[in-house]
Design a protein around this nucleic acid. Structure first.
Lengths: 248, 248
DNA sequence: CGACGTATTGACTCGGCTCAAAACCTGTGG
DNA sequence: CCACAGGTTTTGAGCCGAGTCAATACGTCG
């Protein structure tokens, strides 16, 4: 399985890492410095829980490398994967806008590097610094849009189309044919992420391979006809292929 | 079918209506006045389109009465209902945070009264007035949470449970038994809202009636045992009954 | 009363789930 | 270098929930 590359030496420097984030970029120096001082780099092994649903939101996290699963659990033990996030994404930040409690859980699905930052400081920065509030608005709204598409996808696309859609989002339109992809994490996780069982994933991927010209070998996927694939997928979606803003 | 009550004379007064909204409450008087002057009450008949996906976001709306359907349409004509909103909700406001284009469509499903407001003014108010930005953050984040639950519900609950969940959200926990409900809009719309076909809705509602003690007569539903209903529904959900923040 | 839209029912199909077994990888230690 | 253990993925058989299409019932409004 293809792991995300380890963070470079440079990215392990907290102030540098923060400066690469829109949230901190425009922030008053006063706050940004306090953040840099009160934050901490953590190396998490596979399976580590960052926080659980209903935990008080003491910290939020900026991911430097590796994949993190966001999920909720039902009373009788079933799990829904809300999203998978990596590299450059923040998690747990939105809890401070709700009731100070996490509304989902987060777990590392492989070795992960994060910067851990204090939630109360973010709360303060947002309420006192306008630029920070605006950056937060931008990030929330992107999130919202992503989730709307998620709902659409779950109600209108079948298993094969959802997989195709997932693959398309790994393609960048300017790449030349054939496009070689590496699945970013385990197939069973992709399945969960797309709201299906791994058996269904396996069969649906086979179907997709038969019906569009795809080649699959382990976690390597070769797309030889983008048109065909996007035709197959996007007919059941409200966005056409280079799905703006929904990459990554 | 039960329509929302018509707006009272008082609510038809724009400044008063705006003052009832968190978004405008804390806003600088300068902006609030400009909003009041440049806005307009509109009475929309059933079926009126407020805007379509990909329309440039010139206006946003505050609903005073009636139900509005938010939806997206696929290339081949299928429709996904993202949400149903009414009374006191704003729609189309978040487009200004994206690329100035609506990411879903909105249509009145019955006679609806709205206040139409200019998007560019909102954009300006947010970037210049901190309180407004904060109010916007609050509203977006509530929205986000709602949508996460939607995703969970679609992946983990079956048709009957989703219907039960919908009914539970119409109940207020302090009401005394038996609770008499009126379905807020057509059954076919509820079905679409819950991501199922109306035939399935009809059958699943029957199943729910058999398995929990529900009585249904047209659009009137009587819940005689809340415990039983919430047991049936919430076992497949990460929130327990009086689902905080998810009412309305 | 008749007509139209909405809701229900029936018979059938099909997609995705379940459970169980086999195949495939990957890493470990002899 | 091979054998083996563990996890992950694939395959198979059977089932069940939800979708489809078509016919019927219900409600409401003219």
């Amino acid at each position: 399985m293809a792991s995300t590359a380890s963070p470079s030496r440079e990215e392990l420097h907290i102030p540098t890492a923060l400066d690469n984030q829109p949230l901190f970029r425009g922030m008053k120096a006063e706050f940004r410095d306090t953040f840099a001082q009160s934050s901490q780099i953590q190396i998490l092994s596979k399976g580590t829980i960052l926080f659980l649903q209903d935990d008080p939101a003491e910290w939020f996290y900026l991911i430097l490398s590796g994949w993190v699963k966001l999920f909720t659990e039902t009373m009788d033990g079933d799990e829904a994967v809300i999203d998978m996030v990596s590299n450059g994404h923040m998690i747990g930040d939105s809890a401070i806008l709700e009731d100070g409690v996490h509304s989902f859980g987060a777990a590392a699905v492989e070795p992960v590097t994060v910067i851990r930052l204090p939630s109360n400081l973010l709360k303060q920065a947002i309420s006192e610094d306008h630029q920070t509030a605006l950056a937060m608005l931008g990030s929330l709204s992107r999130h919202r849009k992503r989730q709307s598409r998620e709902i659409e996808s779950l109600t209108l696309q079948n298993a094969s189309q959802r997989i195709g859609c997932f693959l398309l989002r790994l393609c960048h339109p300017e790449q030349s044919m054939p496009i070689e992809l590496t699945l970013p994490y385990d197939k069973s996780l992709i399945a969960a992420r797309l709201g299906m069982k791994s058996e269904t994933f396996s069969r649906a991927l086979n179907k997709l391979r038969k019906e569009t010209s795809l080649a699959i070998k382990g976690s390597m996927v070769t797309v030889s006809d983008l048109e065909e694939l996007s035709g197959y997928v996007c007919s059941a979606c409200s966005n056409e292929f280079p799905c703006k803003d929904l990459h990554g």
